[in-house]
């Protein structure tokens, strides 16, 4: 697990991100999310749509900012992180695309605030899988799907430019 500061919203504390592979209980976790189980206090993201840690950190920063302003569009800050990853304002579609599905085997768990050791314990207890590092997940990025969701111009091929395009679309979705 890695922990990062949220520079734009320092009072929110650190954001903790852990990557898991070989996950066995994705469908049970998805059911708990859909039932809005308040005891499940971590965000769960489909890892193959995360190109770079920066993408997830920007989504978390926006969620922390909107929580402070009392302007969350979803029912929890964790769901908001998943929603922020998507370029559209359709909540159900965003959660379906960027959240976990029944067939998910590798995912990223994310949580804002709290003490690192306690958060990791909670994550390990919740997710039935093997803790790994982001660099070991990276090969699994599903670029074709990302290109489709973000309507990325075919002329954009460089990884850094693809990431820029994604971040730009995420930033603009709530700017009307």
């Amino acid at each position: 697990m890695e922990s990062f500061p949220i520079e734009a919203v320092p009072e929110a504390g650190l954001v903790h991100i852990a990557c898991y592979t070989g996950v066995n209980n994705a469908s049970a976790l998805k059911e708990r999310l859909q039932a809005q189980d308040k005891t499940l206090a971590i965000g769960l993201v489909e890892s193959n749509l995360i190109l770079d840690m920066f993408q997830l950190l920007v989504a978390a920063t926006k969620a922390a900012l909107d929580e402070r302003a009392g302007k969350l569009r979803t029912n929890s800050v964790n769901a908001e992180i998943v929603y922020n990853l998507s370029p559209t304002n359709n909540i159900a579609e965003s959660l379906r695309r960027f959240g976990i599905s029944d067939s998910t085997t590798s995912l990223m768990a994310i949580s804002i605030g709290g003490e690192a050791a306690a958060v990791l314990e909670e994550m390990n207890k919740t997710v039935d899988g093997t803790l790994t590092s982001f660099s070991d997940l990276e090969q699994g990025t599903d670029l074709a799907t990302l290109r489709k969701y973000f309507k990325i111009d075919p002329k954009v091929t460089d990884k850094a430019q693809v990431l820029d395009w994604i971040i730009g679309a995420m930033a603009m979705k709530n700017v009307l």
Partner: peptide, 22 residues
């Protein structure tokens, strides 16, 4: 922010907008 993003989408070299806090 909108003009910057419009340029980025047309592949004009402009700074990427990371986040807008209206």
């Amino acid at each position: 922010a909108r003009c910057l993003n419009r340029c980025q989408k047309a592949l004009i070299d402009t700074p990427t907008v990371y986040m807008v806090d209206v």
